[in-house]
């Protein structure tokens, strides 16, 4: 592995994720714009969103000042030196912070002191999974605090919601979470849902759904159906962009299911803001870029 090449590509991954909204998300915003009537706050919001996307892309500027939790997911070949990958990632994060592609966005939870480089206990997040190929796949999501704060986890049955241990119960949880969030997660949101698992794996799986392209469909028929149904239902709530009313409350719902214990039935909801900053790269064994993943 070439350290310099790897660092250069990881830096480029961060720069592009921060400044260049993926096309599938931009397309969804444009489609949403067609649904909203002229003169409404909804249309005004979506216009501003699309305008800022263009300004960020052409001006090489962060899409949002909250450059978020940095979640790196690596799929590596057998025998890959993940320590070297982690070191290169940290160096790339430091450099991107110095250059203003990332905000000084990491705080010591005990003292309140800010870390100047975003390198700290637990930051950036890096997950390494061994894959079957000789290439390295790396994906990055930058998830801001506003959307993370309105994310939720439910344990079914939930008497208050009248939610039982079935897909109808899952639906109730998702609607409740979006109703509670209103515009505070920077609607229109993308809703990642993880059914099952334990409290940790379920939430992680919900977040993982946000790496899916907006135009894909769940391979599980029942979940694909629920995704469509919920998207329609949530957009009928009239919460709208930024919670100021309108026909676009979500850009999509992505649901995945893990197995569970007989005793547990968790529904985790990871709310992502409209500015879904996620990119990915396929790297050769030496760390050279083969192609972009989104």
């Amino acid at each position: 592995m070439s350290k310099a090449l790897l660092e250069r590509n990881l830096f480029e991954l961060i720069r592009r994720t921060s400044t260049d909204l993926p096309r599938d998300v931009e397309r969804a915003l444009k489609q949403a714009l067609k649904r909203e009537e002229s003169g409404t706050h909804a249309k005004w919001c979506l216009d501003k969103m699309l305008e800022t996307v263009a300004v960020s892309r052409s001006g090489n500027l962060p899409l949002c000042q909250d450059t978020g939790t940095l979640i790196f997911q690596f799929r590596v070949p057998t025998g890959c030196d993940t320590n070297a990958l982690a070191a290169a990632t940290r160096n790339a994060v430091s450099r991107a912070t110095r250059m203003g592609f990332l905000r000084e966005n990491t705080v010591d939870s005990v003292t309140g002191a800010a870390y100047a480089t975003n390198i700290a206990p637990g930051a950036p997040q890096m997950i390494f999974i061994q894959g079957a190929r000789k290439t390295i796949e790396v994906r990055l999501m930058m998830k801001g605090g506003g959307s993370e704060n309105v994310s939720k986890q439910y344990s079914l049955p939930d008497e208050k919601l009248g939610a039982g241990r079935d897909l109808a119960g899952v639906r109730s949880c998702v609607v409740d979470a979006v109703l509670q969030a209103q515009g505070r997660g920077c609607a229109p949101g993308i809703i990642g849902v993880g059914i099952g698992g334990d409290r940790v794996s379920g939430m992680a799986y919900a977040k993982k759904q946000l790496f899916r392209r907006l135009d894909d469909r769940s391979p599980v028929h029942a979940l694909a159906k629920l995704e469509d149904q919920l998207t329609k239902e949530l957009n009928g709530l009239d919460i709208g962009p930024m919670g100021l009313g309108g026909a676009t409350t979500v850009l999509g719902v992505k649901i995945g299911a893990l197995s569970r214990l007989p005793a547990s039935f968790f529904v985790a909801i990871s709310y992502m803001c409209w500015s879904l900053r996620r990119r990915g790269m396929l790297l050769g064994p030496e760390g050279g870029r083969l192609r972009w993943l989104y």
Binding site: M49, T52, C64, R103, A114, C273, W274, S275
Partner: peptide
């Protein structure tokens, strides 16, 4: 409009001053 950070920044004509930078950090 949340997330319209570059657009909002383009409406800032001048950064006139800063206080508590060392104590509280940039954000």
């Amino acid at each position: 409009v949340g997330g319209a950070a570059a657009l909002t920044a383009s409406c800032v004509t001048e950064v006139k001053d800063v206080f508590f930078l060392r104590e509280f950090g940039m954000a």
